[in-house]
Amino acid sequence: MSKEILACTVNGDKQSSLIDPRDTLLEFLRDRLGLTGTKEGCSNGNCGSCTVIVDGQTLCSCLMFAAEAQECEITTVEGLATVEGFHEVQDALVRHGGTQCGFCTPGVLMSAVGLFNENPNPNEDEIRLAIAGNICRCTGYEKIVKALQDVTANGEVA
């Protein structure tokens, strides 16, 4: 019926795709583009597993229609690492073992990148606040917070 064309940029690549107006951005990323790094957890904005960055702002991609992303620049977890290696925040999580089952990790990474883009030197409270919308049922957050504090201490964020 009323399909429309979505034109946007995902991880630096221009995309043009036919979408259903009911598609969420999450469904577009996973099902149309095959970018399955972004996870679907609760589907209503509580868990943060589907966090991506759209035009510089972190958001839950389950709470946005793909049709709203017209002309937007989107970064998913697949856009963080480069051929040279992991993004600093990914590297810190690996060093500190800040991940267990890994399901929340893409969302945590995107929230952390969003934080460091805005505030290169956050304190512990600011770090905890920034990842408050990302539910992790494995780690108890300690190692995630320690990893993000290490990024701060090293001043390594790109």
Binding site: G45, Q57, L59, C60, L63, S111, A132, G133
Partner: peptide, 9 residues
């Protein structure tokens, strides 16, 4: 309101 992701929207 909610989380940072929610406040951004």
């Amino acid at each position: 309101i909610g989380s940072r992701q929610v406040q951004n929207r």
